[in-house]
Design a protein around this nucleic acid. Structure first.
Lengths: 134, 134
DNA sequence: CTAGACTCTGGACCCGGGTCCAGAATCAAG
DNA sequence: CTTGATTCTGGACCCGGGTCCAGAGTCTAG
């Protein structure tokens, strides 16, 4: 099961071959070795790592974050891993709060808009044209 | 008050000069006219329009959206403006829902992580290494 | 009139996360 | 051995929303 090509690795992890090479360029995933021809070879370790990267991305971590996460994982530093996760959580909280703020503004305008009639009576256009949005 | 330079316009709206020219390149804001030297001249209409653009951006609209919004505003089509706002609201709802999904996953992992001890006991590392995240 | 501030243009560059390409080399199946 | 699939490299390009630059021309206050 170990020792396979970049194509097989990419397929197993559900990513594009170019993405694997992109991760390599960015220091996230090195091949286990190379053939005499220069072809990359991967083993189970690299497949696990690639899947780790994908899952971390699904949890909102950037590739930069993931580089850190992989280093923490390698040094088995549970405390730092937890802190990194908490920071990411705070980051996501902030993004949600900002979107909720925006949503609130938009909802109010939509609720107040009759959807017909004079443009001057449309609170959406009025808000965009005249009012301060804090 | 009308008839001012790009610098004054940018300052009044709180954006960079390059941003004004960028909006012009992208069809969002034309100058009212030009001096013989080629210098752009703007009036109150353009300042309002630039502020409109900024406010719409603050409500989550893309520049592409805003081009549409400006056209709808010009044709005073309240119904279409309302529909555009509703679409944007749905878009923001979806983004919030996705972030909340991610946040839920992250929260569970953090809550279950003791923050110390063996790496094997860290649910965050385990999740990244082993589990399917749906 | 002069100095310093402003503006013009076209184009390059930034961010993150990839994607796509050409031309050459290599691998694997039949 | 041949053929078709795969891989190699380096570099260009994509998205959105700007930002920065050089070199030349223009405007304005003193």
């Amino acid at each position: 099961m170990s020792n396979f090509s970049i194509g097989k690795l990419a397929e197993s992890a559900g990513v594009a071959i170019d993405t694997v090479r992109y991760y390599e360029r960015n220091g996230l995933l090195q091949p286990a070795g190379r053939l005499a021809s220069g072809y990359r070879r991967y083993g189970g370790t690299e497949l696990k790592r690639l899947r780790f990267i994908r899952r971390a991305k699904a949890l909102g971590f950037s590739l930069e974050d993931i580089r850190t996460l992989l280093a923490l994982s390698a040094e088995r530093n549970v405390a730092k891993v937890k802190r990194a996760a908490q920071l990411k959580l705070a980051d996501i909280d902030a993004r949600i709060a900002e979107l909720e703020r925006v949503r609130g503004g938009l909802r109010k305008l939509i609720a107040a808009c009759p959807g017909h009639g004079r443009a001057e009576a449309c609170p959406i256009l009025n808000a965009l044209n005249d009012e301060e949005l804090h």
